[in-house]
Nucleic acid binder design. Structure first.
Lengths: 237, 237
DNA sequence: CAAAGGCTTCGCCCCGCACCGAAGTCTTTG
DNA sequence: CAAAGACTTCGGTGCGGGGCGAAGCCTTTG
């Protein structure tokens, strides 16, 4: 039988520098060579070679704008597959300690096109606990209600073939949160409504004061948000 | 943020020899060092080193029985993730030519614990076309009926949290077939009923004469089975 | 046009590892 | 106990590729 060439993908993700770049890119935004080089802790020329390799493997696409080259993941399938991969990969040993230090829902981030991290997990949990979301046959199914409008989600009339609220395994929490069209709508709305914003400096997302209020009033998430009100820096050695 | 160490997984699948071993192991059975060495085209001592690495990465577990050591994938998540990976990986260029030569549903194989390959895809298609299976919200949902008993499937009363009939992307067909508990039941029943059997020599599965009859009578799959009645050899350079 | 900034190409070093042959360990078989 | 078989360990070789400095290309800015 013809073997699938996943050794090419393996080759691409076999290096720690490239892994760090991919983690950065998982956020969904496009990054320049320089940014990714600094994230990986290597010089620009080394990063350039890495990005070329990732491009050849089909994981990343580049777009030239002016004198800058922007790199981003080539598609949602790639982000999804990497998430899946991370779920079976051993976690960096520093993780637990760092997480405790950060505390609560401090770490808020996006995963390609939807919200991820502790807040996203808590959000999904709250929606399930309050009966707005059912977990069934490996999928999330929204129950008609007022919350959805409040979260900026328009629930489709009929269930289609593709999942509207796809469960996504969070690679740090190892628990499910909401991806798919619904996840995208929630993140888009949260940014547009000013609940979240991208910090000027550093990665991740910040929960604003109105964001706190909205999440507390709609889902009682105030308590969980108490300990960490801002995105922690994601930097490490 | 602590990065997930999927570079460890990447390292493990970055080599073509290990990829070939993993493809072999995807069948779901346990293999000896020697068998995997021959599948990868390397000497036993090289295979030994590879398997040690795969073990350290957590993809494979070894079990010693007598003077033989049997290796198998460490779990369904691994098989599932590898499938997913294969779906975004470029396919070996030899594939199309080989597939044409083989023709029809000649290539029948198992994917960890369920049926895969063209036959599995055709099976899922037929079940959907005849209204026995609905594709909805990213999942397969069985409709109560007589076919299920005929296929050796007991449909659960209530839908649970975990999927009963999980869609699985076939890495050669790039189309969906049935995995999850239902997939396992179908394969188990097909083997017990003598519809399929493992060939004495070589890999894959063979469709027996009773198997042909059953698939034809229940799902009209006779036509598709016509061109290839036996498992083709999966050997290549 | 010159200078500056972002990126890539080139050349080089060096580490890691895939590979095999030979030898060693352990188990089964005669 | 000796022989055979399956696997592993060890030693050595050669290739691939990650890393950086220096130089070159292209675009923007003064």
């Amino acid at each position: 039988m013809a073997t699938p060439r996943f050794d090419i993908i393996g080759q691409a993700i076999a290096d720690a520098s490239r892994t760090r770049m991919l983690c950065e890119l998982m956020e969904g935004r496009a990054f320049t060579n320089k940014e990714l080089a600094s994230a990986a802790g290597v010089t620009p020329q080394t990063a350039s070679a890495h990005l070329r390799l990732l491009q050849d493997a089909g994981l990343v696409v580049a777009e030239k704008r002016g004198r800058c080259v922007f790199h981003r993941l080539s598609g949602p399938e790639v982000a999804h597959t990497l998430e899946q991969l991370a779920a079976i990969a051993p976690m960096d040993s520093l993780y637990r300690a760092q997480r405790r230090k950060a505390g609560g829902l401090a770490e808020v981030r996006s995963c390609y096109d939807h919200l991820a991290g502790p807040l996203a997990v808590a959000l999904a949990d709250a929606l399930i606990a309050r009966g707005h979301l059912r977990e069934e046959a490996g999928g999330f199914h929204p129950v008609a209600g007022a919350v959805w409008a409040g979260l900026g989600v328009t629930v489709p009339e009929h269930v289609g073939r593709t999942p509207f609220a796809r469960p996504c395994m969070d690679w740090t929490e190892r628990r499910l949160h909401i991806a798919g069209p619904m996840g995208r709508q929630i993140l888009t709305h949260a940014l547009e409504a000013g609940w979240l914003r991208r910090p000027v400096r550093g990665r991740g997302l910040e929960v604003t004061a109105p964001g706190h209020r909205a999440l507390h009033e709609m889902l009682g998430l105030g308590g969980v948000l108490a300990r960490g009100t801002t995105s922690k820096s994601c930097e490490e050695a």
